[in-house]
Amino acid sequence: MSILILAEHHDRQLAGATAHVAAAAQEIKEILGGDIDVLVAGENVSVVAEAAAKLDGVAKVRVADNAVYAHQLAEPMGALLAELAGDYSHVLGAASTTGKNVLPRVAALKDVSQISEILDVVDADTFKRPIYAGNAIATVKSSDPLKVITVRSTGFDAVGEEGSAAIESVETVVENSQSTFAKQALAQNDRPELSAAKVVISGGRGMGSGENFKLLEGIADKLGAAIGASRAAVDAGFVLNDMQVGQTGKIVAPELYIAVGISGAIQHLAGMKDSKVIVAINKDEEAPIFQVADYGLVADLFEALPVLQSALSK
């Protein structure tokens, strides 16, 4: 049997997460055989389909290009995937807000369980996934004929992009009279995507204001870093929700993570503790963040950050 991947895309661009999902699919395929297909659903998505066709290991890209799939609303996406799922043993998507919105629907429509945020493929039906904010790792085995799975990107290295899969269109068009897209407010910046960046610098409540996040920007520019935040910083309105790192925000595992004015609550650690090197800058030497930091600097961030920026300019 074969594997179907739901492509993650935004603004007519294939998102990096899809190549990580493909890596998880590849591991299942090595055990099970069969093909890996990718579904690109949306409106005017031919460019996305071309990018998906380059992913290593993909046999076929199936494109459902129709206005009903614009903005990938859950109801039509769920119905489409449930219809296509009959040809597959596994349906995989990214553990993104799109994957999490759509895949549980698909599972329920097919009367099977859904397995969230897998980190590891043990076998074609057995997977590891974090529970309790990553304080425990569960190994779960599914007895369902169809496995519907979301994949945590940090658990799998992205596949290469040397492939040339066939592209074919999917004619299935479902009805949707229940939900309509009204508007969106997306963050605009030129920095790398938070969940894919090699370096992330995050600010917490200690930053004191949104204005003060500028202190991180100069450093992020020097390091080519993405900027993240704790929940407290988002709740306080310093920055937008798309920057939240943690159990209920984004999961990151960069080469270097710099936590500034962040205490290190369990829920924040859940989103960044798999980073290769962690640096913490905090004025409280007892802050729990220091227990996971490779390099801790006990200092007032308002003094340390300008010095750091100029040290990086040398």
Partner: peptide, 16 residues
């Protein structure tokens, strides 16, 4: 009308 926290920011949808 539901405003949703999505990966890129905020999205508002209308449901019957």
């Amino acid at each position: 009308a539901v405003t949703r926290e999505i990966d890129g920011g905020l999205q508002t949808i209308e449901l019957i």
